[in-house]
Amino acid sequence: MPIGAPRLNIRCEGIILSDMPYAWSEPPSSDAVVELRLWPHNSLPAKGFAAFILATFTLICIPLLGLLGTVLLWGLLPFAMIALGGMWYALRRNEADRKILEVLTLGRDHMHLVRHNPQGPEQEWQCNPYWAKLIMHQKDGPVPHYVTLSGAGREVEIGAFLSEDERKSLYAELSDRMRRITPP
């Protein structure tokens, strides 16, 4: 998101939806548990997928029109369909790999992070928020502005799939929420 751009916030059933790929639940009181849900971007919805596959099919078939009625068409057609099938498979595989959901539950006496992976087991981490540390690694992480939570003898990443600006925003919002719930 460009610097200075307005943020869009929409309230929906107790969850604040924004233009960021994460959402906070809105607690009924300041002592209530708040939940943060994070997910990767989905830049290709179902209609876009169908349109892209149709456009690819059309562009692959245009050169084959000149070969209609020849034996050469039947020699090239399987390769064209293999290319189309490969594109379909790659896009579906990418969609399946992005089905990641991270849920951070934040209360006065507990902090619990669960990462739902597309394949494989869930990963969990929990800690007392008083002892938890939110750290932004400016340059030492695998990506710039890498955000981690540490506590209970472990350090875990949060929002690693977000863009750099989104990780900065997440760090600011999460540190503010942690500061509000942690007793002085």
Rank of each mutant, 00 (worst) to 15 (best):
I3C: 05
I3N: 08
G4K: 01
G4I: 13
P6I: 12
R7H: 15
L8T: 12
I10Y: 10
E13N: 09
G14K: 04
I15A: 09
I15V: 13
L17P: 06
S18P: 02
S18L: 05
S18V: 00
D19E: 15
M20V: 11
M20L: 15
Y22V: 00
A23F: 00
W24S: 05
P27H: 00
P27S: 00
P28M: 01
S29P: 14
S29F: 14
A32V: 00
V33W: 06
V33Y: 06
E35R: 15
L36H: 06
L36N: 08
R37A: 12
R37T: 08
L38E: 00
H41C: 06
N42D: 14
N42P: 00
N42S: 09
S43W: 06
L44Y: 00
P45N: 15
A46C: 08
A46G: 11
K47S: 10
G48L: 04
A50R: 09
A50M: 10
F52N: 07
F52R: 07
I53D: 08
L54V: 10
A55L: 12
T56G: 07
I60N: 11
C61E: 04
C61F: 09
L64A: 04
L65W: 09
G66E: 05
G66Y: 08
L67G: 10
L68N: 06
L68P: 03
G69D: 04
G69P: 08
V71K: 12
L72Q: 10
L73C: 05
W74K: 01
G75A: 04
P78D: 01
F79A: 02
M81E: 09
I82Q: 06
I82E: 11
A83V: 09
L84N: 06
G86Y: 07
G86R: 03
M87I: 14
A90N: 06
L91P: 02
R93W: 09
R93A: 10
E95N: 08
A96I: 00
R98G: 06
R98D: 12
I100T: 07
I100Y: 05
I100N: 01
L101S: 05
L106Y: 02
G107I: 01
G107E: 00
H110G: 04
H110T: 03
V114D: 06
V114P: 00
R115D: 02
H116I: 14
H116A: 13
N117S: 15
P118C: 07
G120M: 11
P121G: 14
E122W: 11
Q123H: 12
Q123R: 12
C127P: 02
C127A: 12
P129M: 05
P129Q: 03
W131V: 07
L134Y: 09
L134P: 06
M136I: 13
K139A: 12
K139G: 08
D140Y: 09
D140S: 10
V143W: 04
P144T: 07
Y146G: 04
T148A: 01
L149Y: 03
R154C: 01
E155R: 08
E155I: 13
I158Q: 01
I158C: 01
F161C: 07
L162D: 02
E164H: 08
E164P: 07
K168T: 14
K168M: 11
K168P: 01
S169T: 15
S169E: 15
L170T: 06
Y171R: 06
A172Y: 10
A172F: 14
E173Y: 02
L174S: 08
S175M: 07
D176P: 12
R177E: 12
M178K: 01
M178S: 00
R180H: 13
T182E: 15
P184W: 13
